[in-house]
């Protein structure tokens, strides 16, 4: 299944990234994983968070352009060659990767967050290749040790 990634546009100005993390902390939203793509003038912070909808709302209130993007998190084993194998079946199916990064996990397996040219097709291909993907709940709750 697809999961919701929270993406935010951040100008390269002092304190902007900090404002994002501060706003999320204030609402007790955990960042499970993130990647920061940077250009000389702005950055795109892409995050898997414990509550994407709430996260988007919080950041909008802070005046950021924030949106939710569909991505998938593919589980792969921690041994040499597994990333190559999963990419190969995706490329063989004619799919292209828009961006990808790892979803931090503490266990034996890891997960790769991917935005692909066609997510539905990617899910079919992965299922046929016996790859498991994280459910939204799994992804959002990874590494979330909030005292409830």
């Amino acid at each position: 299944m697809v999961i919701k990634q929270l993406s935010v546009f951040i100008e390269n100005r002092e304190g902007r990234l900090e404002r994002v993390t501060e706003a999320l902390r204030e609402r007790n939203i955990n960042i499970a994983s993130f990647s920061l793509a940077d250009t000389s003038e702005y950055g795109l912070l892409r995050m898997i968070v414990s509550d994407p909808e709430e996260g988007q709302k919080v950041l909008k209130e802070e005046g950021f352009s924030a949106k939710l993007t569909d991505v998938i998190a593919v589980k792969i084993a921690q041994r040499p060659g597994t990333l190559h194998e999963v990419l190969k079946i995706l490329f063989d199916a004619g799919l292209s990767v828009e961006y990808m990064y790892t979803l931090a996990t503490a266990g034996k397996d890891t997960s790769i967050i991917m935005k692909l040219s066609n997510l539905d097709r990617a899910l079919e291909v992965l299922q046929a290749g016996k790859y498991a993907v994280c459910t939204d709940k799994e992804a959002y709750e990874i590494n979330n040790h909030v005292d409830k």
Partner: peptide
């Protein structure tokens, strides 16, 4: 200004 409705989370789209 990058308004939300025109905002993409892909660098190439912003470029």
């Amino acid at each position: 200004e990058v308004e939300e409705r025109f905002f993409s989370d892909e660098i190439k789209e912003l470029e």
